[in-house]
Design a protein around this nucleic acid. Structure first.
Lengths: 203, 203
DNA sequence: GCAAGTTACGTCAACATTGACAAAACATGG
DNA sequence: CCATGTTTTGTCAATGTTGACGTAACTTGC
């Protein structure tokens, strides 16, 4: 059975498509670029384009998966005697925000994508982060039966990170370093502001 | 300037479209129904269909907005001396889960929609709930400058509700009453499990 | 009832997306 | 190299979705 070599061929067209898309996006903008143009530039058919990417706009998030994987790894690498929030904070700050190879598209999504799509993506990010944090928590609390506490805790932390993204989206200057700062702030709010006399219980 | 009567006409076609869609969905299923069929049944053009609904699948969520409004109102009606979590819990339990006029479509989305779309919708729900709760909190903390604590608190509560929806999605029997139960459980986890010696700080 | 302004529709065309089926490219055992 | 199984791509056709522009319906003031 053939398994690997074809995969190489497939990878080649995937790269070609990404490259073609980047060129077009830079030259004419995202919306003005048709999927057919990208496919043609890469020397394949439109149908093939859609075999490699779920949608045209998905190309803008081509780097997302690897970023998420990075986060998972960073979280798993944190010492076990650290609080979960601290681990998340550390992972957030250690993120290699300056890598270029896959982050080139990031500029476009911030600039040319309509807000609705961006928020949509951020919601997906929140969800993925929540799952990553859940796994991290389960890895620690050996009695890992996906207890409600674990899930809720993880989702609260992810929610705090979402709040940071939300705040970040509102400001003019949107450096990725600023995003880390905002995350730091919301995580702190989560730690300190939501204690025994926090907002949960009292008005 | 004309303002109202035309709105009446518009409303008529909107209702006709909804009705036509419901019939077709019941008869042939959602995916097998084309937007063109719905438009034709309602006696309008395809383009007009898309002027009234952002997408074919959106028809399945036509009742969502009113549900959200209901929640907002219920939340605002809670006594001011009640804890926020308790207010949310009460609002959730008071929800008129058995109204039929607008909830008929609900069956279809649970049955015929692919999971990805459903989760997507749930994420939107979480977001909307978070905003509703944020407003509710701001209404109380008079110094309403959208402080970080408020936003984070609101998003945590919404996250707990999302966790409930998640749990709910996993079970076989999915009564709306069960959803309320699940919400109760996750909200309790939020109140009790995340205190001073909760999971935020310790492993 | 008529003129002017506004709103809801229709028409047309361009893209985006997807399922079904066939042809081409590639890998391996013989 | 050839036969055969697998992976990748091409072809075709049906939808889904949207922008641009023109027409019809409806309202109000005169």
């Amino acid at each position: 059975m053939a398994r690997n070599p074809q995969t190489i061929r497939s990878e080649r067209t995937r790269v070609a498509l990404r490259k073609a898309a980047l060129s077009r996006f830079q030259a004419q903008g995202v919306e003005a670029t048709t999927a057919e143009q990208i496919a043609a530039d890469a020397g394949v058919t439109l149908r093939t384009f859609y075999r490699h990417f779920p949608s045209k706009h998905d190309l803008l998030f081509a780097d997302y998966d690897s970023g998420l994987q990075w986060f998972r790894g960073a979280l798993a690498a944190r010492p076990a005697d650290e609080s979960v929030v601290e681990s998340v904070r550390a992972a957030i700050f250690a993120f290699p925000y300056d890598v270029q190879p896959l982050t080139q598209m990031a500029a476009f999504r911030a600039a040319e994508l309509d807000p609705e799509r961006i928020v949509n993506h951020l919601r997906r990010v929140e969800n993925d982060l929540a799952e990553a944090i859940t796994e991290h928590l389960e890895r620690r609390t050996k009695g890992s039966d996906r207890a409600l506490d674990v899930v809720v805790t993880a989702r609260c932390i992810a929610a705090a990170l979402f709040a940071a993204m939300e705040v970040w989206m509102r400001q003019d200057r949107r450096t990725l370093a600023d995003l880390a700062e905002a995350s730091h702030a919301t995580l702190t709010a989560l730690e300190t502001g939501l204690g025994p006399d926090g907002m949960f219980r009292h008005s």
